[in-house]
């Protein structure tokens, strides 16, 4: 009985705080994305000569994100029937945009005109597949070459 109460408390806490933080995060992402709109980040540039560039430097942005209790519970249910896991989609979306933003903000302070050959990567550093112990922690990194 107590276990059940604790479970519902955690679920409610996860749902409300998770939702709150997600909305706050999306607000901040959208605001910063508008601010960094002037700096284009492109995925090409490796094999093409870039005549307009004189200086280049590497920029890396990274973030480790975790799911909340509610998301993990919904994922657990979703796992039974299969299909889209919407709760994790927004998580990864936030992480990726945050990593890109951090890279861009560094490049802007350096004075870059463009970031070329951007690469995105994500890896799981938390729980292993098939093991329900440990936490959900996903690292997303974005890196590219700033030129000016």
């Amino acid at each position: 009985m107590y276990n059940l109460i604790i479970f519902f408390c955690l679920l409610a806490l996860g749902y409300f705080s998770g939702n709150y933080f997600e909305q706050q995060h999306y607000k901040s992402i959208k605001r910063r994305e508008r601010k960094t709109l002037s700096l284009p980040a492109v995925t090409f540039g490796a094999k093409k000569p870039i005549p307009e560039a004189e200086v280049a430097a590497l920029f890396v942005g990274s973030v480790v994100i975790s799911a909340d209790y509610f998301k993990m519970f919904v994922y657990g249910l979703r796992n039974l029937v299969g299909g889209r896991v919407v709760v994790y989609e927004s998580l990864l979306d936030r992480g990726r945009r945050e990593a890109l933003l951090r890279m861009k903000e560094q490049a802007i302070t350096w004075g870059a005109s463009t970031i070329v050959n951007v690469r995105l990567e994500s890896s799981n550093i938390g729980r292993q597949a098939g093991n329900n112990k440990g936490m959900v922690a996903i690292e997303v990194i974005a890196y590219g070459t700033g030129i000016k």
Binding site: L10, L13, S17, F21, S66, D68, Y69, K71, I125, A137
Partner: peptide, 12 residues
């Protein structure tokens, strides 16, 4: 943090 969600700043 894994209960309430969000960025794990220490890990980052």
């Amino acid at each position: 943090k894994n209960i309430i969600g969000g960025e794990l700043k220490g890990y980052t």
